[in-house]
């Protein structure tokens, strides 16, 4: 079986795939700013279902991929863009466009013949991403899971200025003070975010069907509908939309372990060890990289964060 771990800004997803790359188990945990702890918790839960020997390879992805790789002994750490694309292509060969919106990132990936041909990612603004929706749900005291339902109830969505998170919030408050219905505001917000995505992140990209919508925000059916209306084509949300990155990492790990011959997985046992990160400045050259060292008790388990590989290449 293959383990995939996606350590994102908002959620940490862990999946276990079988030999045929079918999903056996999935976990969707909140990162809450403590990636080490949440990975350990996840492994603890999984240790009830699986033994160390079951895991043939481990892949990590997400912004915490290097940390996760060192921590669990990953065989490969891949960026989210490639992981999402691999997972989607594995699921459906017909996919041509992937819209992925996570906690802090939004991305568009275009695919031809199963190969990524182009991609883009939000650069300066996170207005349309999950954490902003989270915040708005909290402000309106609507559970985030219900956000989409509210949007669908709307008859006449209001127009919200969605270019910037701060202004979008001001505009929402303004509309709410004018007495608009909450569901109309939420529907307006969804279409503003979709508009913002298409005109910013997806600017100049050739969006062709079949379109996949994945990442945490795909849970919001209001967003799905907004994209469908805007693009005038059907948008598919895969069954495991929320853990697609982790699935991709597990698939890539399966390919990688063939080259590596043996997995470097450190076992589920690490869930009850004390892991301490420690950062220091490397004085090897003028770059002065900040290197992170992970220690398990007194034992150094690995390094990451350097640019030249002087530390990360060290096998501990």
């Amino acid at each position: 079986m293959y383990l995939g771990i996606d350590v994102g800004s908002v959620s940490t997803d862990i999946v276990v795939l079988d030999e045929d790359l079918k999903l056996v188990h999935k976990l969707y945990l909140r990162t809450k700013g403590r990636p080490i702890k949440v990975i350990q918790e996840g492994l603890l839960i999984l240790s009830e279902f699986f033994k160390d020997g079951d895991i043939k390879a481990v892949g990590t992805t997400g912004s915490g991929r290097y940390l996760a790789k060192v921590l669990v002994g990953g065989d490969i750490a891949k960026n989210e863009i490639t992981s999402h694309a691999v997972a989607a292509v594995n699921l459906d060969k017909e996919v041509r466009t992937i819209i992925e919106i996570g906690g802090q990132d939004s991305k568009i990936i275009t695919i031809e013949n199963g190969v990524v041909t182009d991609f883009a990612m939000n650069t300066v603004c996170a207005a349309g991403t999950g954490s902003f929706l989270d915040r708005q749900a909290e402000r309106l005291e609507i559970p985030i899971e219900k956000f989409g339902e509210y949007a669908l109830k709307s008859q006449n969505p209001v127009r919200i200025a969605g270019r910037c998170a701060v202004f979008a919030e001001s505009d929402m408050i303004h509309k709410q003070q004018l007495g608009y219905d909450v569901s109309d505001i939420i529907a307006g917000l969804c279409s503003a975010l979709a508009r913002n995505f298409i005109s910013n992140v997806a600017k100049g990209k050739n969006i062709k069907p079949k379109v996949f919508f994945q990442g945490g925000v795909a849970a919001n059916i209001g967003m799905k509908r907004a994209f469908e209306e805007l693009l005038d084509m059907e948008v598919f949300v895969p069954e495991h939309y929320d853990v697609m990155g982790a699935i991709g990492a597990a698939i890539l790990a399966k390919e990688q372990v063939v080259l590596n011959k043996k997995t470097s997985f450190r076992g589920f046992g690490i869930h009850n060890t004390l892991i301490m990160p420690n950062t220091f400045k490397c004085n090897g050259c003028s770059n002065m990289c900040e290197v992170v060292e992970l220690k398990e008790g007194e034992f150094k388990i690995g390094y990451f964060g350097d640019k030249c590989g002087r530390w990360s290449r060290v096998a501990v």
């Binding site: 989210e80 863009i81 013949n113 190969v115 990524v116 991609f119 990612m121």
Partner: peptide, 27 residues
């Protein structure tokens, strides 16, 4: 001066994967 490292490196890595994919398919 505001460029975030994480997104920057993710894009570079994904770009290299894209090129590698193309090379494999001989595009």
């Amino acid at each position: 001066e505001m460029t975030g490292e994480a997104g920057y490196y993710t894009r570079i890595e994904a770009f290299l994967d894209l090129i590698e994919g193309r090379k494999r398919m001989c595009i």
